[in-house]
Write a protein that binds this DNA or RNA. Structure first.
Lengths: 144, 144
DNA sequence: TTTATTTCGGATATTTTTATCCTATTTATA
DNA sequence: TATAAATAGGATAAAAATATCCGAAATAAA
């Protein structure tokens, strides 16, 4: 469904969010350890999230990654996914046709649309804040 | 969502189904042309579908690929997807956790479950027959 | 201003997926 | 039985995704 990069990106963002509640910045090293991902690869993904302004980075001593905790409520999963995997999951044809729309649909167009709309709705209505709060309260987990 | 291999596999199966209505067998060459896919790669995918008994092959002169047209109604998309991509799309964790269940859920476990159930329902309730009939009647298309 | 710390970003390596090629095997028909 | 026509399947190649490494640039604090 999502690429590895995207999975890491989502988990990393959640961990950063948790720390930002307490105004703490975190390093790729801490993040990778916490979400059980390869450190250097994770760092690359963080760069992409910074470029897309999903998270913020501060260079130098006492630096690290953070998110604006006042915006946590408004940062949605969809933004993270789009920043990393692009919007193919939204717009692409389920069977890979270059041109696939109501006028020229692929065989699963209509049926696929429903599933994708459900996915889209989920991604656009799930905030980083709620995911982070679930981790904080022990309801969910970032690694096995 | 699906791998390229799976996209080709679904489209190939539909084309084979259309021809099986008229008891015609088709070759990888014809299939690849019709669904706009690389021929040799498509042939490999057909082999996998044969191994999983989704379609049938007949070697030698006048051979080719076919499906039992009496079973078309009962061949579901889910069988094709499982034969090619495995059942990771059904059982795998949305964020890639090795262990992710009700007792130890990843951050998106509950929300993801709904989307996946919808997808699962769609795949398990869509038959090769209906997809093939839509192509035959010009309602949908196998290539752009 | 120097130093230690930290992210940035380019180069490279590894693995997986996608794709190709060629020979072996099977089978219907002449 | 010989031949032509097909699929089967192993070996490779190419491309994309995943992952690693290292020096450059930025920054806070001593």
């Amino acid at each position: 469904m999502f690429s590895k990069a995207c999975e890491y990106g989502i988990k990393a963002s959640i961990f950063i969010a948790i720390n930002s509640f307490e105004d703490k910045r975190v390093s790729p090293k801490e993040i990778a350890k916490e979400i059980n991902s390869p450190e250097a690869f994770t760092a690359k993904i963080l760069q992409a999230l910074v470029r897309h302004k999903v998270i913020n980075s501060v260079k130098g001593a006492y630096g690290g990654f953070e998110v604006n905790k006042n915006e946590l409520k408004h940062i949605k999963l969809s933004q993270i996914v789009k920043a990393i995997d692009g919007d193919n999951i939204y717009n692409g044809c389920g069977l890979g046709l270059e041109k696939c729309d109501e006028n020229h649909p692929c065989p699963v167009h209509e049926k696929f649309k429903e599933v994708r709309n459900e996915l889209k709705h989920m991604l656009e209505n799930t905030s980083l804040e709620e995911l982070a709060l679930d981790i904080k309260s022990g309801v969910s987990f970032l690694k096995a």
